[in-house]
Design a binder for these strands. Structure first.
Lengths: 233, 233
DNA sequence: GTATATTTGTGTTTTAGAACATAGTTCTAT
DNA sequence: ATAGAACTATGTTCTAAAACACAAATATAC
């Protein structure tokens, strides 16, 4: 019961965007239908071809959305940070998932039935517009990503990924180390290259004093150069 | 005046999806604010970094949405067929356009002020959901496209593009020729390859009796093999 | 209808990045 | 705490596709 109470508090205070837009009645319905699910590191949240049923909001932890491509080679499509929503696109498109989601590290995810969300947003223009905006922003990012991944060279793609990770998860207290603990393989599948190439290019960046590496921790030394490398391709 | 009348008729009968969802009052407002603009072959409809102001619906003709990538190399992001909407994403995301749009061939485009559309959809759940669905479908396609363009080889990418063109614009009366007149360069920038590679691979497909070529006209002879090549990468 | 520009086709060279191999290192589960 | 698995690192080889070069064929504009 204490646990239940805690969840309720989490939900109302941790869904700021959606919560703000609802009426009291809607909030009550949402409160009694939402649940919080915990995932361990590397645990799957949903699978490619699953049927989408719930809107998910990441409360804590880090999540990757990925696709298995040609010959099982997997590709990270986007990364989710706390208080971001995910898992809703396929439901709206009336499709099964075309991606899978996995916890990079242990996570708490709030799940809200999509039927509820659809019912609310058909009555609530602000909520509808909130989703329209999220989808529009994501579609713009996806369009940009197509060009970045296909036209930039490995150095440009890796530089871009490092900057994206910094953008999403921020820096540690030293103001330089990217706040994520990522295998080289994940860095590779985020940057569309082989693991060898990610390792090699990372080493080059270290030699050029653009970054410093301590195991999986990456410290950005010369962010300006990273930006330049990312821009130039 | 006769011309004006004609436009009005076109608008009500050619915007089936949106029209159906509006009230009579909304229809009246829309009718008096929509305009039809004609574009000649290769004319630009909007430019990268322009400010989006209008929802566009292609009434007739063919349109490409493209981005200029690294070193000016342009990449076709998607192609628009008649009765498809476009140009609205950036407005919803509160961004300028990140893509440009150009007429493949002479076009008639219906333009509706985006403010109007936003006002309507905030009041009209069905209209809002219509846009949510379009955006969701497009985002799914974009995610798929990232993997296709980065992981498939030239043959797979070209096969896929040919099938996509057939899907969008259909076949001519012979039931085999793709109903579009496209330069090799456009075919290349749709398939993310150089023009030389598009030409060469097209020739290979001809030698393998998968397609036949007459100038820019492409006839699909063995669609099954195209599908197979596209799937296999 | 002719001239000029653009597009198409093909051969050759070059190169970025994949594939492969192998050793050392670091996780992780029991 | 230790064994086994997974990850990291680096060198070497191989290959798909880009870059380049140049005819030939078509389009487009005047």
């Amino acid at each position: 019961m204490a646990g239940k109470k805690k969840d309720v508090i989490d939900i109302s205070s941790s869904l700021p965007d959606i919560w703000r837009m609802l009426t009291d009645a809607e909030r009550e319905i949402l409160r009694s239908n939402a649940r919080i699910v915990h995932f361990k590191k590397n645990e799957l949240i949903y699978l490619e071809d699953d049927t989408p049923r719930e809107l998910m909001c990441l409360f804590s932890g880090k999540v990757k959305i990925f696709k298995s491509g040609v010959g099982g080679r997997s590709q990270i499509i986007r990364i989710i940070r706390p208080i971001q929503y995910f898992g809703y696109r396929a439901y709206f498109a009336r499709e099964n998932y075309v991606t899978a989601a996995m916890a990079f590290e242990s996570c708490a995810v709030c799940m809200i039935p999509m039927e509820l969300i659809e019912r609310f947003l058909r009555e609530n223009g602000n909520l509808a517009f909130f989703f329209i905006q999220m989808l529009s922003v994501d579609l713009g990012i996806a369009d940009q990503r197509v060009v970045n991944l296909t036209q930039k060279h490995v150095r440009g793609r890796l530089a871009e990924s490092l900057l994206a990770l910094k953008e999403s998860y921020g820096l540690e207290e030293d103001g330089a180390t990217i706040n994520i603990y990522l295998a080289r393989e994940d860095l590779a599948s985020l940057s569309n290259m082989t693991t060898s190439n990610a390792i090699r290019t990372l080493s080059n960046f270290v030699n050029e004093r653009i970054i410093a590496i301590d195991g999986r921790k990456i410290k950005i030394i010369d962010e300006e150069r990273l930006h330049k490398i990312s821009r130039m391709g």
